[in-house]
Amino acid sequence: MEELIQKLKEEIIEVLNLEEMEPGDIDPDAPLFGEGLGLDSIDALELIVLLEKNYGIKIEDPKDGRKIFFTLRTMAEYITEHQK
């Protein structure tokens, strides 16, 4: 799990252009949206694409995104459970 979290940190920094951040700056248990990383709705779409492109996981109902992308850890747990 920790290895996947580290990989996700690097991928998120790259796809979301968080150029000022290092992987170590991202708390895996902090909210990704709102007060955490301060991501926006476009970032949410980008994370959905990331899951599909890099992990082959398609989110059928966008409403599920709220739970899946709550923190980096919830995202990693979802990937672990759903990756084929």
């Binding site: 796809v15 476009i42 779409l45």
Partner: peptide
Amino acid sequence: YFPSPSNFV
């Protein structure tokens, strides 16, 4: 086919 929303906007 993986269009990037952040590019598209």
